[in-house]
């Protein structure tokens, strides 16, 4: 019991790092996803291809390989120097971005064509229609899938411990080694992840109820 009490403050520090990385990465990932989804649906073929190649490349390779490529691979180039936190954030963002792009694309395509026609018939241009009519409806519809991906990305951050980022998992490893009580330390680490993810999905269903039911 004592070991846990001693380990707990370190685990909380790790949790802060996890949440910090998750938060920035998910926002970046969302922006990437939105841009890529719009490229995917743009009227120019070449843009569609670029977007599709990106999405396929990310979906077709393991997260850990993407992480190693960005941290070790890119850093081996003379003109690039990324610290591990930046590399971690970038990897999670790029990874989530590809999945978000597919979610957003599907969301956009699920909106009835009549919505676009009505907006265009009023004189709104394509951008105004996307911004005021299509995206707000698409986002409401994609919220559940979106939450799912955010949870997956949060769990993916635990893999960042392998490049030495002092996140919750990494702190857990250190404490497990220091206290010789791996059973209890990892049990607590697991519980902390569980609670955070549970809170996240509660928040999501609250937002969903607030916006979707209408």
């Amino acid at each position: 019991m004592n070991t846990i009490v001693n380990a707990f403050p370190y685990l909380m520090e790790g949790l802060q790092v996890t949440i910090y990385i998750f938060f920035i990465a998910i926002i970046l990932g969302f922006i990437i996803g939105l841009v890529v989804a719009l490229l995917r649906l743009a009227p120019l073929k070449i843009l569609n291809w670029i977007a599709k190649i990106y999405v396929d490349a990310i979906r077709g390779t393991p997260f850990i390989v993407q992480l190693f490529f960005i941290y070790f691979g890119l850093n081996s180039l003379a003109w690039i120097s990324l610290d591990n936190t930046t590399a971690g954030i970038v990897t999670v963002a790029i990874n989530a971005g590809a999945y978000f792009a597919e979610i957003i694309r599907a969301g956009i395509q699920s909106i009835d064509k009549g919505q676009t026609e009505a907006a265009r018939s009023l004189g709104l241009n394509a951008q105004q229609t996307m911004r005021h009519i299509v995206l707000p409806q698409a986002f409401r519809r994609m919220l559940p899938t979106f939450t799912n991906q955010a949870i997956i990305s949060l769990k993916d951050t635990s893999l960042l411990s392998v490049i030495g980022i002092a996140d919750l998992t990494q702190e857990g490893r250190i404490q497990a080694a220091a206290t010789f009580d791996a059973f209890n330390v990892y049990l607590i680490v697991g519980l902390i992840y569980f609670v955070v993810i549970y809170l996240l999905s509660m928040l999501a269903s609250y937002v969903e109820r607030k916006f979707v039911l209408r």
Partner: peptide, 27 residues
């Protein structure tokens, strides 16, 4: 040109995420 040509559709195509007032005032 479309600003001068109103259109009414068979399926109404109102914007479901906006109130009646917002539907009318958006454009």
């Amino acid at each position: 040109i479309r600003q001068n040509v109103g259109m009414v559709f068979q399926q109404f195509n109102l914007f479901p995420h906006m109130s009646v007032m917002e539907n009318i005032t958006l454009a």
